[in-house]
């Protein structure tokens, strides 16, 4: 299962995964629920904000034209 990470989308090494999770737990000592909540909010907010900004930009440009 040790296959290439971080290059052309191949899976991350499980040992690296364990380490990442351990470090995340150490640095951000919160419950998994909080981790999922933060990740979920970011996941929802990022495309929404980006889409809104892109549409606003396109409308302003159309208005100037």
């Amino acid at each position: 299962m040790r296959s290439p990470p971080l290059h052309h989308s191949e899976p991350v090494d499980p040992t690296l995964l364990d380490w990442i999770l351990h470090q995340v737990d150490r640095l951000l000592p919160f419950d998994p629920v909080v981790g999922v909540a933060i990740g979920g909010v970011l996941l929802l907010a990022a495309p929404a904000v980006l889409a809104a900004l892109a549409v606003r930009h396109a409308r302003r440009r159309a208005g100037r034209a």
């Binding site: 299962m1 990470p5 971080l6 989308s9 191949e10 899976p11 499980p14 995964l17 495309p47």
Partner: peptide, 23 residues
């Protein structure tokens, strides 16, 4: 740059889920 940002998000979700295969 908005195009770059949108593709960045798409790549992040697609590649991120694939990299998590080991989980």
């Amino acid at each position: 740059w908005y195009v770059v940002a949108a593709i960045f998000f798409v790549s992040m979700t697609a590649i991120g889920s694939r990299q998590a295969f080991g989980l």
